[in-house]
């Protein structure tokens, strides 16, 4: 555990140190990596620690992003309002969807979350008066924090995302080592045993679902500011699937692993595609490689033989 914390600290320090000398484009990619890492970690709470594979995680991410985009462009709302409304919107959506989804397990849970995700996608696409439909909402201004540096610059916004991601990691890290997090792991390992021991399994799963959705919302808030643009693409199935792959690639149940998986996919997508049109082939090969040689993800592989 402490070794992992040290590892993450090292990566974060390294990123923070090289950022000022990086050219603008790699820096924006690094920013993107940290934002997407929050999303991947949030799904890990659900998938890795609670054992619930969700295929609708883009919904909470997207709801928050839309909330920020609408408030910031139409109401000129400040950062605090956007942040709070965005995260609350994601949490409320997760709370509502959780009531429906938590009843099921395994593949059924996967299908229900997928369907619920599609509902949000449908709303984003069709509720044109609110979401501008397919055209998306553009021109979301970067927030004013009253700091001496404007977040319009790539470097200040990078540090802003970095700090947020680290905070999210710390909070989720504390959650998963807390007694609550331990009982989540217990549920993952054996639901029936936990039930017999007197735990309210449903409530634990439900809370995990809502918390996970809330953190996905945090990522969504940042994402809206990062791109300055929100569209149905952000809430579509592909986004959910990609998040799931990030977690699988990095190693579920490790938090730091999915974050690394997220960063890896962001860089693979954007750097390899520069050199070849067949970059999807390489991405596919990496997935297969990880599944064959490191079935517990990159983090799992580094832990070696220890089980």
């Amino acid at each position: 555990m402490s070794r992992r914390v040290a590892g993450v600290g090292l990566i974060v320090l390294l990123a923070a140190a090289v950022a000022p000398v990086l050219p603008a484009y790699p820096l924006t990619l690094l920013t993107q990596a940290f934002i997407v890492a929050i999303l991947a970690m949030s799904l890990d709470v659900l998938l890795g620690y609670t054992g619930l594979p969700s295929l609708g995680h883009a919904a909470y991410f997207g709801v928050a992003a839309y909330a920020v985009a609408i408030l910031a462009t139409e109401r000129q709302a400040g950062f605090a309002t956007c942040l709070v409304v965005g995260i609350v919107a994601a949490a409320v959506t997760a709370a509502a969807f959780g009531l429906i989804a938590i009843r099921a397990a395994g593949t059924y849970f996967l299908m229900i979350t997928l369907a619920l995700g599609m509902v949000v996608w449908g709303l984003a696409f069709r509720w044109v008066s609110l979401t501008k439909g397919d055209n998306g909402i553009s021109g979301v201004p970067r927030p004013e924090l009253g700091l001496p540096w404007s977040l319009w610059g790539p470097l200040p916004f990078f540090y802003f995302s970095l700090v947020t991601a680290v905070l999210a990691w710390v909070l989720m890290g504390l959650l998963v080592v807390s007694p609550f997090g331990m009982s989540l792991k217990g549920i993952r390992e054996s639901e029936s045993r936990m039930r017999i021991l007197g735990y309210n399994v449903w409530l634990h799963k439900y809370l995990s679902f809502v918390i996970s959705g809330t953190f996905a919302g945090l990522a969504g808030v940042l994402w809206a500011y990062y791109n300055g643009f929100v569209s149905p693409v952000d809430v579509q199935l592909v986004t959910s699937v990609e998040t799931l792959l990030m977690v699988a690639l990095g190693g579920p149940g490790t938090l730091a692993g999915p974050a690394v998986g997220a960063a890896l996919i962001v860089f693979l997508k954007n750097f390899v595609s520069v050199y070849t049109k067949r970059w999807l082939l390489i991405l596919g090969a990496v997935y297969i490689g990880v599944i064959l040689f490191a079935p517990r993800g990159l983090a799992g592989a580094f832990r070696g033989q220890r089980h």
């Binding site: 603008a24 484009y25 924006t28 990619l29 998306g136 791109n227 693409v233 997508k269 520069v274």
Partner: peptide
């Protein structure tokens, strides 16, 4: 055919 990717690639073309 994805707008988020297009935005990222536009940044790459302009910044890099």
């Amino acid at each position: 055919g994805n707008t988020q990717t297009a935005l990222t690639k536009a940044r790459k073309l302009v910044d890099q």
